[in-house]
Design a binder for these strands. Structure first.
Length: 289
DNA sequence: CTCAGCTCCTGCGGGC
DNA sequence: TGCCCGCAGGAGCTGA
């Protein structure tokens, strides 16, 4: 499931393959993924030169120039999307859930495979992705930026959450999963970060201490950095840009470990599983709610 | 305005 | 052995 570390891994790899290369043509196996492709999708991309690849949350933004006009090719991988680079080119559109092929002038090809088709693509005019891309406008802060810190979580998020009518306050897990607060975390990494910070996922944001918020932020940073270094987590469908596996799944401490022993040194707890917001949540049995 | 719950989709694994 | 059912996931939509 591509979350921030997976998208960042793909971005770093594809930068070396795509930057300063030109798209000769784009082929589609169908007219939609989760949403329909934008109008004249293939025509607009054909002939464009790729200038940069950036990431925002779980989105990959491919910056393009065509006829002196800049635009952004926005890609979201959903839960099973893969962006794969073939330096010798690729055919096979339509097989193995391959939905998009962008053939490059250099002879290589960038392909998009997606079994479940939860992913989607968009084209946005301009060069300022945060303002020019409709889908990025509502996103919260980047968890690896300095703006994401314990005091922000403790004061700003808690305040915003308190001002809503929700009397009980939101669970910290729901806060971290909500892309409007923090952009890029999904179920796996939120689970791992909270295990690292020793905070129960059901704890209400109002009830957390500043110190606990600091621990959560530290956990988020640590887990994301380790996961990026490991090339992401290949739990089911995820692959890196060259088709190879990521390795962070071997380092998971809580996710999908229900009933097993807690791996914290000196802890004799076990990993419990509950459902929060319709998603599986795993945590050490020794943590208090 | 918020928010819980539903929806999209397919492959896999458990149970009978 | 084979079939059926439920689960996994992100984000947008709906109705309260």
């Amino acid at each position: 499931m591509p979350e921030l570390p997976e998208v960042e891994t793909i971005r770093r790899y594809l930068c070396s393959c795509l930057v300063d290369r030109c798209i000769s043509s784009v082929r589609l196996a169908r007219k939609d993924l989760r949403f329909p492709f934008p109008a004249r999708f293939c025509e607009r991309l054909a002939g464009a030169r790729i200038t940069a690849l950036k990431r925002r949350g779980k989105y990959l933004a491919i910056f393009c120039v065509k006829d002196d006009t800049s635009f952004i090719w926005l890609v979201h991988l959903g839960m099973s999307g893969r962006l794969l680079w073939f330096s010798e080119g690729a055919d096979g559109l339509g097989i193995d859930h391959r939905h998009v092929c962008a053939d490059m002038v250099c002879g290589g090809a960038l392909c998009y495979d997606d079994v479940r088709r939860f992913g989607f693509m968009d084209l946005c005019a301009g060069t300022d992705m945060d303002n020019d891309c409709e889908r990025l406008r509502h996103l919260g802060i980047e968890p690896l930026s300095n703006r994401f810190n314990g005091r922000w979580l403790w004061e700003e998020v808690s305040k915003k959450s308190k001002s809503s009518k929700n009397s009980g306050g939101k669970a910290i897990k729901d806060i971290l999963m909500d892309q409007r607060y923090v952009a890029g975390l999904g179920n796996i990494y939120v689970t791992e970060c909270l295990w690292d910070a020793m905070v129960h996922p059901m704890r209400k944001i109002h009830d957390l201490t500043l110190d606990e918020c600091e621990q959560i932020v530290k956990g988020v940073r640590k887990v994301l950095r380790l996961a990026i270094d490991a090339g992401g987590s290949s739990l089911r469908d995820y692959r890196q840009g060259d088709g190879s596996l990521g390795y962070f799944q071997l380092m998971l401490r809580a996710y999908a470990r229900a009933g097993k022993e807690c791996l914290r040194v000196g802890c004799d707890g076990t990993i419990n599983k509950i459902t929060i917001g319709g998603r599986s949540s795993f945590f050490c049995s020794k943590l208090k709610t």
